[in-house]
């Protein structure tokens, strides 16, 4: 790499690129960590400058989760890989009904990545972390040779605390329970697809990438007896309902006319031959609750800005085959099966 990465003593965020010294453990790496990561994520725990963050926690049950982010392209309408890496992991913590406490972040950088892109992503991640109120307290940076990565991969791990009395788990769906979604489906997947040059279509649609922990807090407060929560990311609604049906040993019946979908998403799916039920979301959740709490849960979801289009879309049924079925708008019935193979590459 011959491009100078330093302008004077500071990092050159205009023309500079990541090179192997940024992961080499020397002064260049220390400079990148100080001038970019510590500066952006700044908080008391990170400022301890240890290989780990040390903090006290309340007594009770904790949750821990981890997720890798490899999305291509790194920037998309409504977000980027940085904000996604915060929202996605906060959501995985929140889907246990837990209050997120802290995140870690690990970066795998490819040699040649423009420092301007890296800074934009790190700043977006820092902004998302402040907005959701969950600090990034520890991290790691590695650099791989050109051709051995795709610009940038991020891994984040999150921990959270489950409020007393909350028992949310994928194995708790019972026949008769109602199935709710927090809003329109498929927005993220279609927004990302629109950025792929080979697909050649434009849309005003934005990714729904958002952190759902505050919505979840309202839901848990209103209906503490909530049975299941899950965010329908890869594989969309279809994959998530099949997971929950299998885990709980039940079947599900959903109603096509009740599923909220934007016309832009329907149009793009029509054009590309995709089924919106299989398209990824990054700011939506599926909730399953006892039938008597369904209306109260729907009301509290619709009162939150991230749940204005929430809807009751179906119910849990007894079924030894654990099938997810849908009553079509047309009046027939069909399975909503697991996705076979891969509908699209790398959208989260």
């Amino acid at each position: 790499m011959t491009t100078p990465t330093r302008k004077g003593s500071a990092l050159d965020f205009t023309h500079g690129r990541v090179d192997l010294t940024h992961g080499g453990g020397g002064r260049a790496m220390a400079q990148l960590v100080e001038e970019l990561f510590v500066a952006a994520f700044d908080n008391d725990l990170l400022r301890q400058r240890n290989d780990q963050a040390c903090f006290a926690v309340d007594a009770g049950r904790m949750v821990m989760t981890t997720d890798g982010y490899v999305i291509s392209p790194m920037f998309f309408p409504g977000g980027d890989i940085g904000s996604l890496a915060v929202h996605g992991t906060v959501n995985d913590v929140a889907m246990a009904g837990a209050v997120p406490i802290a995140l870690s972040a690990s970066f795998i950088l490819e040699e040649g990545l423009p420092l301007a892109d890296l800074r934009r992503i790190v700043q977006s991640m820092a902004a998302a972390s402040i907005e959701v109120g969950v600090p990034i307290v520890t991290g790691d940076t590695k650099v791989v040779e050109k051709g051995k990565g795709d610009g940038l991969f991020i891994s984040t791990t999150g921990i959270g605390r489950v409020p007393p009395g909350v028992e949310i788990s994928g194995d708790r769906a019972r026949p008769g329970d109602r199935i709710l979604v927090s809003g329109t489906l498929g927005d993220h997947g279609v927004a990302v697809m629109s950025q792929r040059e080979s697909l050649g279509f434009e849309t005003t649609l934005k990714s729904d990438s958002a952190a759902l922990h505050r919505l979840v807090a309202d839901m848990v407060a209103a209906v503490p007896g909530l049975h299941c929560l899950r965010d329908p990311t890869r594989g969309g609604l279809a994959a998530t309902l099949n997971e929950l049906a299998g885990q709980s040993g039940v079947g599900m019946m959903i109603h096509e006319v009740a599923i909220p979908l934007r016309p832009e998403v329907l149009g793009a799916c029509e054009l590309l031959g995709l089924d919106p039920l299989y398209v990824a979301n990054e700011g939506k959740l599926i909730a399953i609750c006892p039938p008597e709490s369904a209306e109260a849960l729907l009301a509290v979801m619709r009162a939150h800005p991230l749940g204005t289009n929430a809807a009751i879309i179906g119910e849990v049924v007894a079924d030894d085959h654990h099938f997810v079925q849908m009553e079509t708008a047309f009046g027939g019935r069909r399975m909503v099966d697991w996705l076979a193979g891969e509908q699209l590459p790398r959208i989260c």
Partner: peptide, 9 residues
């Protein structure tokens, strides 16, 4: 036919 459940009709 399969996707819309036409055989049911």
């Amino acid at each position: 036919i399969s996707r819309y459940g036409i055989e049911d009709l």
